[in-house]
Simulated assay, not measured.
Amino acid sequence: MTMYVWDYLSEYEREREDILDAVDTVFRSGRLVLGESVKGFEEDFAAYQGVDHCVGVDNGTNAVKLGLQALGVGPGDEVITVSNTAAPTVVAIDGTGATPVFVDVRPDDYLMDTEQVASAITHRTKALLPVHLYGQCVDMAPLRRLADRHGLVILEDCAQAHGALHHGRPAGTMGDAGAFSFYPTKVLGAYGDGGAVITHRAEADQALRRLRYYGMDQDYYVVGTPGHNSRLDEVQAEILRRKLTRLDGYIEGRRAVARRYEEGLADIAGAYGLVLPTTNEGNTHVHYVYVVRHAQRDDIIDRLKGYGISLNISYPWPVHTMTGFAHLGWTEGALPQTESAAREIFSLPMYPSLDQARQDRVIEALREVLGTL
């Protein structure tokens, strides 16, 4: 039986009664769209994050897109971000009519190299979009200083960082708004698509509520900027509301898995060229994925298939090298750290219900493969 980087079935078996009750609660409520479950989840998630406002939307991509629009980003603007991210980050920027501008990442943690941001700012720059990748936060202090100096807004991409902290502050609360995805694989995942934007800014909250509902502030009447049909589904909201009460437990489960990898691989990593993930000072890592690095990545992945282990790469193609973004004019070699990482990184299985026996199977197989290279 093939083992994959993510699996939800064992978790579902444990939580099945509550999940099905959540569905039944919505179906019996008499309100299937923007009802009490969406309202309740928005209030609960805002409280968990320690912010004033949370607006549920239909997916993480639109959380980024609508978040940018609510902060005033539009055609003719530039948004500084990274190419080492899931394509939806950049798809969302493109969807606002703004132009994504890339800076490279750091070689040790693959996060935005904040020292490169200042030189990327132009008179068209409107926003900074750091991506809190793999479960830990970008260094936000220098970005905040740059934003304040140049009059920019900051939208944090928190799709992989639910519950992550940076010097005690939750991901998504250090900029002007934070965008979250609740895709099933996420640290807080739904049983389908979902997303949300959190903010302290009342005007952004009001704009988001219009934008997710066609641009309406009342039935059938569009004001300001026309919006989208981007409402968080009532069933997914109720499931997320239940799962939010277990989020801290999910995070601790992920940390336990990360500790077992460290214990099982640290003694051979250096000798065999395997680079294990690090946690930056001041960060609380939630380990959305467990990303390791090796110069013979592709060979390792192929050999592990013989052990029934199928691994993932997050991400094999930097966004700036994709043909879909050729119109931006970036070429290979422009972001050397990003491109180097894309050739060597890969993810080991990571989810809170990963039991020790299955994880040991991964560790032993990887040790054996490394020993034959």
Rank of each mutant, 00 (worst) to 15 (best):
T278R: 11
E332W: 07
L348S: 01
I309T: 01
R303G: 08
R293M: 12
G175F: 10
R231E: 03
A196P: 05
I313L: 03
K39T: 14
L143N: 02
L265W: 05
Q236Y: 10
Y288V: 01
G215V: 04
F346C: 02
Q49I: 15
T284D: 15
Q160V: 12
G195M: 00
Q116D: 11
C158W: 08
L66A: 06
N229V: 10
H150I: 09
S314K: 12
P184V: 10
E332V: 14
I121Y: 01
T372P: 00
V51H: 05
E43H: 09
V138E: 03
D109L: 08
D233H: 09
T278F: 05
G168Y: 10
L366M: 07
R303N: 10
R231V: 08
E339A: 07
D157W: 06
A204L: 00
V257I: 07
Y214T: 09
T61M: 14
H287M: 12
Q356A: 13
S37H: 10
Y290D: 00
P130V: 05
R303I: 09
K305E: 15
I121H: 01
I154T: 00
G282W: 09
H287Q: 08
A22H: 00
Q160L: 13
W317N: 14
L348V: 01
Q160R: 14
P100W: 02
S181M: 09
I19E: 13
R149T: 15
V38I: 04
E262G: 12
A171L: 07
S353L: 00
D108P: 01
T173N: 05
D18H: 12
Q337S: 12
V286C: 08
S340H: 15
Y290A: 00
V275A: 15
D360W: 06
L165R: 07
V222A: 04
A334L: 03
Y307M: 07
